[in-house]
Write a protein that binds this DNA or RNA. Structure first.
Lengths: 116, 116
DNA sequence: GCGCAATATAACCTGATGGTTCTGAAACCT
DNA sequence: AGGTTTCAGAACCATCAGGTTATATTGCGC
């Protein structure tokens, strides 16, 4: 049962393509700020700001490795957000029908996740 | 495969408790602007603005009934957002373990939705 | 201790957000 | 036709978001 403010922070953090890309990168393992910044045409402080938003939402945590501050994905808020969204599943199933591409994709992903 | 901008708009729309409450209300059926505004200590134009955000994200659609402009929940963007989030499921399963309350709840909801 | 690499902080700018009040437009009701 | 209800739009305001550049801070390597 996430607090509304926690959902605010989570959805807010997810509402930016740079931050979603950072999370996708972190899904493959920890990374330093410089490593995270590299793909983006953006200054390092801009990335640090994005990381602060993600940290504030609890989506990442940071450790210490010499001068580096490696970032690690923390999935709990993602689970809470998914828990909130999943309650609407009956609505899109109703609106789409069983053959809808998107639902098929979703089911495939869920099955895949379930096998791990 | 939602466009990044679509996910931006969806998550942005969800990042406000008033708008999430509006969606929850609409999950029980269509409602007019006045009906939606009633629970909130907020002016009617403020609600209209929130509805515009939701409409822009494709989360609601509006019809016409005399002076009323009934709002209806459109679940497709919710499905797309869920589709994006569900890819991280393996991460929270790994981080939480099988006994975590939140995961249990999520599984229960999914099972329930699957039966309908 | 010095210089460099990695990161954070500060100050600043611009545009978006979330609220307000006031006004206007449509469609109903006698 | 006149008043009422429902809603949207405009103008305004304060705050926040996302970017910049310039400046610390911190810890390594020599």
């Amino acid at each position: 049962m996430p607090t509304p403010a926690a959902l605010d922070a989570t959805f807010q953090a997810l509402a930016d393509p740079t931050r979603r890309a950072i999370l996708a990168r972190l899904a493959q393992g920890e990374a330093s700020v410089m490593e995270l910044a590299e793909p983006f045409a953006m200054s390092q402080p801009a990335i640090s700001k994005h990381l602060k938003v993600l940290e504030h939402a609890g989506l990442i945590s940071r450790s210490r490795d010499a001068q580096r501050r490696p970032c690690k994905l923390e999935a709990a808020p993602l689970a809470e957000a998914t828990g909130w969204l999943i309650e609407y599943r009956k609505f899109w199933e109703k609106q789409f029908g069983q053959l809808d591409d998107l639902l098929d994709e979703l089911k495939r992903l869920e099955a895949m996740a379930g096998k791990n």
